[in-house]
């Protein structure tokens, strides 16, 4: 029982990371209607830019800011491709494009960062906040959760209260129509991509030191991130947040049972399916068609 609680506490870091990444995914989807498989890869680019800059002697905070900017820049590049050529494309085409971009970005990323060559990821927040049930709850874990909540809160306020937020919502629902009524569609979309890129970068910069930071590994964090976003149906930011924490917790709890062995990774997946089927039990028709 106690070891279960221990694992629950230990899962907070991963949970917070998934939550923040998931919120970023929902953010991108709600505002520019793209499920971005390359999302974590964009963040990984920024995070590795940070690590490489610090390796060559840039001060930590300078490197961090440069990393965030780089993440935003890569986000804008991906966004430019998406908005320029695929603004009106179908979901499956967009999914295929972001998959192709994931392949491309990781290829470049692995080349530049040298595969499994470990990089010194400076810890932006080191040390632990407190000890709970024999587990050190690190500052990073706290920061991740806090950031995810802050981001969720801010997005909510922004979308519902601000003029630009309302414009953005119009944009995601009908880009062409939004353009007609004079909303600077292209520009706004790119801002969304930039913010998404920077936020993902921040998330990955924070968790990279505690994970095996290789480019591919960080890029594939998109899977739990999207799974969290799915729990919120790519609509609700708070449900996404919760989903991320739950998935992180689940992974951690299951690793406490050696019997489940190799099937560990399958368990969160099954839970997601169960949650979805239950919550969608009333839905029969696709809304739009």
């Amino acid at each position: 029982m106690n070891s279960l609680l221990t694992n629950a506490v230990a899962g907070l870091t991963a949970g917070g990371a998934y939550a923040l990444l998931g919120v970023c995914a929902t953010f991108t989807f709600r505002l520019v209607a793209v499920v971005n498989f390359a999302g974590a890869a964009i963040g990984a680019s920024g995070a590795f830019a940070f690590a490489l800059l610090v390796e060559v002697g840039t001060p930590i905070w300078g490197g961090a800011i440069a990393g965030l900017l780089f993440g935003a820049l890569v986000g804008v590049l991906v966004g430019e491709i998406m908005t320029r050529w695929f603004a009106e494309a179908s979901t499956s085409i967009k999914a295929a494009v972001s998959t192709a971009l994931l392949v491309g970005v990781t290829a470049v990323g692995l080349r530049v960062t040298g595969g499994q060559r470990p990089h010194e990821f400076p810890e932006l927040l080191s040390g632990s906040a407190f000890r709970l049930l024999g587990v050190e709850v690190t500052n990073t874990a706290i920061a991740m959760l806090g950031l995810a909540m802050l981001f969720t809160l801010l997005i909510g306020l922004f979308l519902n209260r601000s003029h630009v937020g309302l414009q953005l919502r119009a944009l995601s629902e009908r880009p062409a129509a939004a353009e007609l009524i004079g909303i600077p569609v292209h520009q706004l979309s790119l801002w969304v991509w930039a913010i998404g890129g920077a936020a993902t970068t921040l998330a990955l910069m924070l968790i990279a030191p505690q994970r095996a930071p290789n480019f591919l590994g960080l890029s594939l964090l998109v899977v739990p991130a999207l799974a969290s976003a799915l729990i919120g149906f790519f609509r609700s930011f708070w449900a996404t947040l919760l989903g991320g924490v739950v998935i992180g917790e689940m992974e951690s709890l299951i690793s406490g049972f050696s019997g489940l062995g190799a099937y560990r990774t399958a368990v969160p997946f099954l839970v997601i399916i169960a949650v979805l089927l239950w919550s969608q039990r009333g839905g029969r028709w696709d809304d739009a068609r």
Partner: peptide, 16 residues
């Protein structure tokens, strides 16, 4: 029950 992108992510999860 699931369509479009939701289904995509479920299948991705299965693949993982």
């Amino acid at each position: 029950r699931l369509r479009g992108i939701n289904l995509a992510i479920v299948t991705l999860g299965f693949a993982g």
